[in-house]
């Protein structure tokens, strides 16, 4: 056990955990409403979309790639699904199948283009972001869908606990989606052969290829998974927002990237854990929520977020520099 604690403290996740806990304790003491079940439920619900996408993006980053286009994939998926839901007699199963199919299709397009064009993944996905989003806006004329079927807007939620004043505390679809995305991603990365292959691909592509990993097929899976998660996230976002707007999601891709990177994933590939990503999302969520509760004008929240990102990535880089210097000293 002491060995485990020692290792945790020296890992990036350990230090991040410390920061998140300190922030949590501080906000609980400094504000009246931060440490309340209702606030935690609200946070889980409103960060479910970014959180799910962060889980998907983590897989792509570990594989050594990057995806910028997932917000556009999500917008296309939710628009198609909700249009179908409005015009045909369909239910949850069909809607879930549609967002999954659209999301996976977008992801596979990315993987195929990355595998065949000889362009880096960031360039390809910037291009496909514009293609997906541009086509969506062209086809829909930017019209929002305000009227969604009742069975969808009512959603599904379970009252877990009712307090003395009669306020219900609920467990909703957003939480299921968020927890599901993290659990599935963790299982994929740590409990499957494919997960090991993804880490191997991200650590050293040539070596991975030589030991027989089929890079193209693995990329299909990685970007397909990202698309799948984006589709699911888009569905629960539409359920939460109770409407679909084709341009509501695009522009949030870099926020998600920031959360994953705060969680310790490297853009060079091969590094990153689900636990770290959860902490990264939590840090940003606590920070933004906490500033609001502390009474800081909401106009300044972005500035603080940026400063935290800058400090965190600098600390991370310094840590890696020191590690590298340590290795050099051992080698010499």
């Amino acid at each position: 056990m002491p060995d485990f604690t020692k290792r945790l403290l020296h890992s990036h996740e350990g230090k991040l955990l410390l920061v998140v806990v300190v922030l949590f304790v501080f906000l609980s003491l400094a504000t009246r409403s931060f440490f309340s079940l209702q606030n935690m439920i609200d946070l889980l619900t409103s960060y479910s979309f970014s959180g799910m996408l962060a889980a998907g993006l983590l897989v792509v980053l570990i594989s050594g790639g990057i995806d910028i286009s997932f917000t556009a994939s999500a917008s296309v998926a939710q628009y198609v699904a909700m249009t179908v839901a409005n015009h045909f007699n369909v239910g949850w199963v069909e809607v879930i199948l549609i967002v999954a199919a659209v999301g996976i299709a977008c992801g596979l397009i990315n993987a195929v283009l990355i595998g065949t064009l000889g362009l880096s993944s960031i360039i390809v996905t910037i291009a496909t972001l514009n293609v997906f989003f541009g086509l969506l806006m062209f086809v829909t004329h930017g019209n929002e869908i305000f009227q969604l079927p009742d069975w969808f807007t009512n959603g599904a939620s379970w009252v877990v606990y009712t307090d003395k004043q009669g306020n219900p505390y609920i467990f909703n679809l957003q939480m299921i989606g968020l927890i599901g995305a993290f659990v599935v991603t963790a299982l994929l990365l740590t409990r499957t052969n494919i997960g090991r292959q993804i880490y191997a691909l991200g650590s050293n592509k040539d070596a991975a290829q030589r030991v027989g990993i089929k890079v193209f097929r693995l990329n299909l899976l990685v970007y397909g998974y990202m698309g799948f998660v984006a589709g699911m996230a888009s569905l629960i976002q539409a359920q939460d927002a109770q409407s679909v707007s084709p341009n509501a999601l695009v522009g949030r891709e870099l926020d998600v990237l920031a959360a994953v990177v705060l969680g310790g994933a490297s853009l060079m590939g091969g590094v990153g854990t689900v636990f770290g990503t959860i902490l990264g999302v939590m840090l940003l969520a606590f920070l933004q929520n906490g500033l609001l509760l502390l009474g800081v004008q909401s106009y300044w929240s972005e500035c603080f977020t940026g400063a935290v990102i800058l400090i965190a990535v600098s600390a991370l880089a310094l840590e890696r520099q020191r590690q590298r210097a340590g290795i050099r000293r051992v080698m010499a």
């Binding site: 920031a258 106009y299 300044w300 977020t305 940026g306 400063a307």
Partner: peptide, 27 residues
């Protein structure tokens, strides 16, 4: 000097600089 990857460093400054502009002008 700190060896931060350019994407991440400029992602941070982008958010911070825009935040300063929004904060000062209230959008």
């Amino acid at each position: 000097y700190l060896g931060v990857s350019p994407i991440l460093a400029t992602l941070g400054t982008m958010t911070m600089v825009k935040g300063i502009a929004v904060g000062l002008t209230h959008g």
